[in-house]
């Protein structure tokens, strides 16, 4: 029972973690809380839906196209909405992302309607795999596999590639990064593109469970914010740990106490953790030594 709850909680947690990673990457690079992260993902999920249902493109290609589209959406977001702002204030930037979220939400409702649609998926919630005593649904299994692979790819990118290291350098000190020859504009657009792809993958993975409507990412986005804050808003590992633990926590409370309280208790614990560690579980701050 315990392992069971942990594993299925982890699957949900992985989705939170993907969205949270998108938030953290953007936050570190642009110093913006991106309130549009959820609805960028929602739009990408709807695009996938259209590619599958209306254009009858095979699943694999539809997802691939949608991911490319998500990347462009994220990059364009940065180019069109953030780059023109010359001397932004933190509040101004938040309003820009909130505004963009409203625009995306409205446009999605206008194109696809507000009624709930079923997402055509190859994966089933009912089909079940057994690993010894452990039972896991096909959807959850694929969520785990896809998220872990994506996170691994991200880890390798940020650890070992020149561009990945440049993004981290730029997030820490923009001026010095420019002095190394990093083109801040394009690197920033790339960062937004990656964040958008992370959200899109989460959206496509969630859609078979939650169905499809313009509100679908509202709850996951809120959870991702909580997860990122819990883990430490400036830490990639923190987003993963935060997402995973939030998913597991919810599931344990839901399983052992009552499903009604699962979110309340989870958030109560987050609040307690933040009281003790304001910068999150893995949030790090170096003091400048001279």
């Amino acid at each position: 029972m315990l392992t069971q709850l942990i594993v299925s909680g982890l699957a949900t947690g992985c989705l939170y973690a993907l969205v949270a990673l998108g938030l953290v990457i953007v936050y570190k690079a642009s110093n913006v809380l991106n309130f549009a992260q959820g609805d960028m993902a929602m739009v990408s999920t709807f695009v996938t839906f259209t590619l599958l249902e209306t254009l009858h493109i095979p699943f694999f290609w539809a997802v691939l196209l949608a991911i490319v589209g998500a990347f462009l959406l994220g990059a364009l977001f940065e180019i069109c909405l953030l780059r023109p702002v010359k001397h932004p204030t933190p509040l101004g930037l938040i309003i820009i992302t909130v505004g963009a979220q409203q625009i995306l939400y409205g446009v999605a409702g206008w194109i696809w309607g507000y009624d709930t649609k079923a997402f055509p998926s190859l994966l089933s919630d009912l089909k079940i795999y057994r690993f010894g005593a452990l039972v896991i649904s096909e959807v959850n299994l694929w969520i785990l596999i896809a998220s872990v692979l994506l996170m691994l790819a991200l880890l390798l990118f940020f650890r070992y590639t020149r561009l990945g290291i440049a993004i981290r350098a730029m997030s820490q000190n923009l001026i010095t990064a420019k002095l190394m020859g990093v083109s801040a504009h394009w690197t920033l657009s790339l960062t937004w593109g990656i964040a958008s792809v992370l959200g899109a993958v989460a959206g496509i993975l969630i859609a078979p469970i939650t169905f499809l409507d313009p509100n679908m990412m509202l709850n996951p986005l809120l959870k991702a914010f909580a997860a990122a804050t819990l883990g430490g808003m400036n830490s990639f590992a923190g987003a993963v740990v935060g997402g995973g633990s939030l998913g597991i926590l919810e599931n344990l409370v839901g399983g052992y106490l009552t499903p009604e309280l699962k979110e309340s208790v989870a958030f109560l614990i987050i609040i307690l953790v933040l009281c003790v560690r304001p910068s999150g579980l893995l949030g790090r701050h170096y003091k400048h030594r001279v």
Binding site: R168, A169, Q172, N173, T176, R284, Y286, H288
Partner: peptide, 9 residues
């Protein structure tokens, strides 16, 4: 000036 290293690299 101030020797700004990338602290988390």
């Amino acid at each position: 000036e101030g020797r700004p290293v990338f602290e988390e690299l």
